[in-house]
Design a protein around this nucleic acid. Structure first.
Lengths: 191, 191, 191, 191
DNA sequence: CATGAATGAGCGTTCATTCAT
DNA sequence: GATGAATGAACGCTCATTCAT
């Protein structure tokens, strides 16, 4: 059992959930260290400094999320099916990595992100924008700024998962389907 | 016009715009003081400490926003008109208090908010939920968790205003109407 | 009585004597603060950081020493009189600024000196080298590398003052004259 | 050839050259370990801690230098020949142990030296003082504090070797002889 | 024996807060 | 009241030292 790998993982996980819950600036290295049950100095064996840590984290989960969205993407299906694929990707990804999407959403414009992180995030945006632009061309998605439409989708989705985590709502298939439908109605073209 | 009142106001305004632009943790007291053109010590004449300042600010604008939404609320009009009233309230409020809604949205789950701030924010949510619940009863709003529906509305609205501030989009009436329609479609009941 | 000026001076003096006694790397900011009887943070009101402090110190005393050497320099006198002037300058300077010359000598090649400090020191060296080169031309100073000759003069002089400070030797005029004569014999041309 | 002895030697040599080049405080244990091609922990098998290491090093080379000066000392020769012997000893010692004399000279007053190191260094000084005192008695060396005279000799010699190492000067026999002569003139009695 | 991952004390530095003016 | 110089706790980070392997 490789101890060092598990230590790096502990640090990674603690940093992810603390950054997601409190934000980068309000999360201290001692906090991460104590949450990960390692000495403060140990963090620096695995990450050059706090900014490298947050960028590594960001890139890792942005890439993972991108992969989730791209995998088995139904290129030739209808817009609605493609939307379903994307929405299901968010659901699956959030189930597997509890804080990751919230962390990405709340930190994607932060001052400390490096070029790699920004372009990683842009790649992610472009996938979503590509979908939306294609839908606009086919007149199946309404003619609003893509970023606003993406924000609506993310906003609704993340809020839903906050409620689920808080136990205020149960994550039934019906609920998920309902929110998907709501988001879809927000973006689709109505005659 | 009493000087001290205007000093308090300067501090208030500077704090609001700095918290909105940089976040609570990245905003220092000297920054606020210099932006407000007062000495750093002066801030402590009006606010016990930084957390009291941010909470006062939060409560003030949450209350003001609440008031804006409640004022002239068309109790007896149809759901769609009520929705329009609320959406227009957001527009008006943002025009009058540029950074306030963004500040509220980005700080409403922060670790430093006290009980009063949290309940103030809950009160705001409850107004919106009241509207949504009434709509659900009349089967004109879809049967989803109210908080998720509110998130979608806020999300879309704020994203729109970010784009406008960034100059990526022009704030035409048509655009505002389009986003209002999108948000409405996200929440309204479709047969 | 301007308190702040005296605080800056206390910091300056404490830093000078600690850097001279322990060296830059072994001197901590808390040490300087406690020696100067100020809070650690106070040092940063007057000096941007530790490197700026040491460079300010270096430049200040290098300039002062330069001035001492240049003042009333007997341009038209003989080499021996010029040497006497320089040696007396060292004596006077060290009496007025106990640790300064030792600090300059031990830190003049340090990695943390900035361009200004280095050129300040080069200017000082050039004065001494100018004297030596002139003497070499007149065949009154021996044909050895100027830097080696300067080192001998400084070395003897500083060692003398260490002994005086340690109380191992009394600073009589006779002693000073003797050391001056020894240094002079080390550099002068003998037939 | 026992491995452990060679490891200790590697550590010793690496520590010597790093301390001489960068100074005690700027030299880290990992630096020494990596230069010596051993693990950082291994250093602690041979030396209790960093201060013990530097003291051991200091005492070792101070003793070796002492031995070099004492070996074949021409007790019955004239003062000038004895001086030549000592000066040649410095040359030989520096050729055999490149950084040792510079390390001794730059660290002989350091805060971390223990009593043994200080007395070892005093012993070295006393040998030189013995020579000087004898010369003073015979009125062949001038009547100045011995330590000041020794400083001049060391100062000139080390400055010479710095220039040689820096490539600013070529180490010819003529140069060595010239510096020896300069130092001798600094200490010898002139009528 | 030798290693290097792990630790935490202590560094340089910032900034919320106090208080003499 | 208003100020900003002064403070020191706490930050991000380094490195001497330990100890499980």
């Amino acid at each position: 059992m490789p101890t060092s790998t598990s230590k790096r993982d502990h640090i990674f996980q603690s940093a992810l959930s603390l950054f997601a819950e409190r934000g980068f600036d309000a999360t201290t290295i001692p906090m991460i260290a104590s949450d990960a049950k390692v000495g403060a100095g140990t963090i620096y064996r695995y990450f050059e400094n706090k900014e490298v840590l947050v960028n590594t984290l960001f890139q890792h989960y942005a890439a993972l999320f991108t992969k989730t969205l791209e995998e088995d993407y139904p290129k030739d299906a209808g817009i609605r099916d493609q939307f379903h694929h994307l929405f299901q990707g968010m659901v699956r990804f959030t189930n597997e990595h509890e804080h990751a999407l919230y962390f990405i959403k709340t930190h994607n414009a932060a001052y400390f992100l490096d070029e790699t992180s920004r372009s990683q995030f842009n790649h992610l945006l472009m996938i979503l924008e590509g979908f939306i632009d294609e839908g606009k061309e086919k007149e199946q998605i309404r003619g609003l700024p893509s970023k606003a439409l993406i924000a609506i989708i993310f906003g609704g989705f993340l809020e839903l998962f906050k409620l689920i985590r808080a136990g205020e709502v149960e994550a039934t298939d019906a609920l998920l389907a309902g929110v998907e439908e709501s988001c879809w109605d927000a973006v689709r073209h109505h005659e």
